[in-house]
Design a binder for these strands. Structure first.
Lengths: 209, 209, 209, 209
DNA sequence: AATGAATGAGCTTTCATTCAT
DNA sequence: TATGAATGAAAGCTCATTCAT
């Protein structure tokens, strides 16, 4: 492995460092509240350096979201692609997968949704925009597919599949927001697990005949 | 009806105009993203005029939230205070009430939660801070009370009532976020009703023995 | 005295009310620090009303200074015009007169000097500008006259009279500034008298052969 | 002399450039009247740049005053510490020292006194506040010490030493204000020297038995 | 490649001034 | 005559972004 390769790996590592820092700051302060300077400080770099890796603030944010969406898609894909699993089982696995995602980073969805909501404001390059959108769509399509399969096998009520995917999304988002709300309302942590279980049941219930 | 009265009514109306504009903008852009200039433009006023009615940006935001919380509390109170209604019925009514609130303004909770999350950053006057917090607490206490009553009557599983109130909150927030997400993912509107029904069932299920 | 006269007197009274309020506020906050709103509040009037009596902030300030200068000139005139008084006596009386002025309003000179210093910045009407300048000049001329007389009678050293008048001014200003400085350095009040006495001596000493 | 050193020196130089510009503008317009934009323009920098060197307007003003007070303290210290000098001589030297300070920058005291007067209004960091106050106190203590010594040796009348230091201060301030007043009254420059001499005599006279 | 330094653009906020009533 | 309400203009300050080194 020559110098070129090492350089490339180093560069990739820096990128990750920055994305990690960005995740931390964007999560805590929101997109508008975060400053490039603060992200740079957390990454132990100068603000100017960030611009060597990302064209501007919104592309940094977008790249972060793509990374997170990729992880989410990956997990959902695993579930969707699992052979020899009945749809109801898959739904359970799906919920578990989403819980994993949530555990991996509780703020994924807050961010992703925010990205979606204000996409028109950000001046992303067309490629990035495309990437974000297609990835989000893919995640939903995968989820919808699971429910669709169940419907086709006559196991699920024929709720329009998109709506069900949205339900997953919604309940999951509930968890996220709920988590956030605790800064103010402060229930005990453990009820998250209870809530998750209920959410799984809802999903299963909502789709099984 | 003297001049003074008309003046007072006009003033109150302006306040409402501003709060409406603020709701619109804060909802779309978030607290940090919204600018006083934009809010003023939407209210068809000059930015300076906003400061005749609100001391600063955060107090405008806080006032908006207080108004929304007041409406929410009012509705929940109606349900909680309804005589001759069994707790399970009340839970159904509660869900309906929250749907009303949601219909009245789909963005209530997004804002309120954001307010809770970043409260420490805003330099609110102590009075306003107190008002926001006590109102939020009151809303939760009312909801918790409904479940508590059910538990005491042996009709509900003894989930800690706070957790249940949080569940309501969480699922409801899910609806909100879900709604938001549609800016990006755009499912059809009507599924909201389905989701709500499911949410009602969850709540009933989660609490009935 | 008809209605017209009463109206005129009332109007004059309002003017005085405003000038009093202005004196208070300008003294405490300085020209730039004072706001029309604060002055209006102190005069128990609306800001708009101030503009019925004065064209703008600087003319209000200028009018105030003219009033104060008038009082100062009046006192100095009394001393200068006193028959049968030898110049050395007159100097003593002059110092006393200035002390009276100072007692009447300790901030006269701070204000007047500020006015002089930044005159070019204020957009005064030519008439007001003229009035302020001629009044200040008259005050100095009167003081200079006293010393001049002494010199002509061979009683005072032939210091250029303007310089001596300036000395009076300077020492007196010292008192003013000194008073101001006490907000920070806080010596006891009574030493003002001592200092004044010394100042009188300086003045007498500086001019007597 | 590495890059780091040169950077540091350049940075220090910029700071000085800004302080010089600030001195000029604050002196002419006063604290409230001066604008950051004007100061920046004079320093041939953008307003934003000022904030790289000073946290805000009041800290810039405070830093300026600290610098000036430091110079003043330094000069007074030299006089106070001079061995083999009788108190009366020291008073003369003190007056000369203050004249030096005045020559170095005629506006030192105008600024410093203004700072003292409105200190409570400015939101300085506690450290800066402490620095300004302790430095001003130190200057006065040094001056008072000189007179105290004379009193203890029975050479001066037992005027409370603080009052005497204040007298020095006051007369000196008179010079400053007087200088200011000339923008309006414009006597010739040279009389400053005469006035100074008289001031020296006052001080000597005021304190010698 | 990395950064210290600089800045233009924009935001919140204030205030002298105006005007309809 | 008096004023409540409104606002243009400007001030302090922040921050994404650039550029010389």
């Amino acid at each position: 492995m020559g110098v070129v390769e090492r350089r490339a790996r180093e560069k990739e590592q820096r990128r990750e460092t920055i994305l990690d820092a960005a995740k931390e700051i964007f999560s805590r302060k929101g997109y508008q509240g975060a400053t490039m300077e603060e992200i740079a400080a957390r990454a132990e770099l100068s603000p100017a350096t960030l611009y060597l890796y990302f064209n501007n603030k919104s592309e940094l944010f977008a790249s972060l979201n793509i990374k997170m969406l990729a992880f989410l898609c990956h997990r959902v894909e695993q579930v969707a692609g699992q052979k020899g699993l009945e749809p109801p089982e898959k739904v359970r696995h799906l919920a578990q997968a989403m819980h994993d995602v949530y555990t991996f980073d509780p703020l994924i969805l807050t961010n992703v949704l925010h990205m979606q909501a204000s996409q028109e404001l950000m001046d992303l390059s067309p490629e990035l925009k495309e990437q974000v959108n297609s990835m989000a769509a893919r995640g939903l399509r995968l989820m919808a597919g699971i429910f669709q399969q169940g419907i086709e096998q006559g196991l699920f009520r024929p709720y329009p599949p998109v709506a069900l995917a949205d339900l997953v999304w919604a309940v999951f988002s509930g968890l996220v927001l709920w988590e956030e709300s605790k800064h103010g309302f402060a229930p005990e942590k453990d009820y998250l697990q209870d809530t998750l279980e209920l959410a799984i049941e809802i999903m299963a219930r909502g789709v099984s005949k």
